[in-house]
Simulated scan of single mutants.
Amino acid sequence: MKNLAKIAILLSSGLLTLSLSACGSSAPLFTSDGRPTQQIQCSAASSGDCDQRARTQCAQKGYDVLTRDVNGSVANLVIACQAN
C-alpha cells in the first residue's frame, strides 16, 4: 500500500512538471503583416540598453516596438524587425 502511494505521488509530480514545461514553450507570434515577434528584457533605466538589444536581435535593421511593460527596473519589450 505504501508503494502504491509513492508511485501515485511520483506520477502526479511528473505530470505537473510536464504540464508546466509545456506552458513555457509557445509558438512564436506574428504581426498582422506576417513578421515574427520577439520579446526582449532590458534595463528600464537605460533606453540605450533596450535599443542595442533590439538592434542586435534584428541584425542592425530597424524594428517596431509593439508593447513595452516596465516592472521595477526591468523593461519587457515585444518587437518586430522591419523588413529589408
Rank of each mutant, 00 (worst) to 15 (best):
C50N: 09
C42S: 05
R55M: 12
A75T: 08
N71Y: 11
A44N: 01
D69R: 14
L10R: 09
S43P: 01
N76D: 12
N71M: 15
P28G: 01
T37I: 07
G48V: 09
I79F: 00
N76S: 15
A80R: 10
G62Y: 06
A5F: 05
S21V: 12
V74Y: 00
G34R: 04
L16K: 08
G62L: 10
L20Q: 13
A22E: 15
D33Q: 10
P36Y: 02
N3C: 01
A5I: 07
K6Y: 08
Y63F: 11
L4Y: 10
L77Q: 04
S12W: 05
R68H: 05
S46R: 11
A80Q: 06
A75S: 11
G62K: 08
Q57W: 04
A27V: 11
R53E: 06
C50H: 04
A45L: 15
M1Q: 13
S47C: 04
L16Q: 10
S46L: 13
G62V: 03
L10A: 15
Q52A: 14
K2R: 14
Q52M: 12
A8Y: 06
C42V: 09
Q82G: 05
A59V: 04
L18Y: 14
M1C: 06
S26K: 15
R35D: 02
S43A: 10
I79Q: 01
G48P: 02
G62A: 03
A75G: 03
Q82W: 04
L15M: 12
R55Q: 08
G72H: 04
S25I: 14
D69N: 15
I40G: 00
G34T: 09
S21M: 11
A5E: 03
I79C: 01
R53V: 07
S25H: 13
S43E: 15
G24K: 08
S13C: 08
L4F: 08
C23P: 00
L77F: 03
D64G: 00
N84R: 10
S32F: 11
I40N: 00
A75Y: 02
V74A: 08
Q41A: 14
G72N: 05
A80L: 06
S26M: 10
A22C: 15
D33R: 11
D49F: 07
L29A: 13
L4W: 10
L16A: 13
I7W: 13
G62I: 03
S12M: 13
M1R: 09
F30Y: 13
N71Q: 13
L10S: 09
G34I: 12
G72Q: 04
A83C: 07
I7N: 02
P36G: 03
L77E: 04
S26R: 12
L16P: 03
V65N: 01
I7G: 02
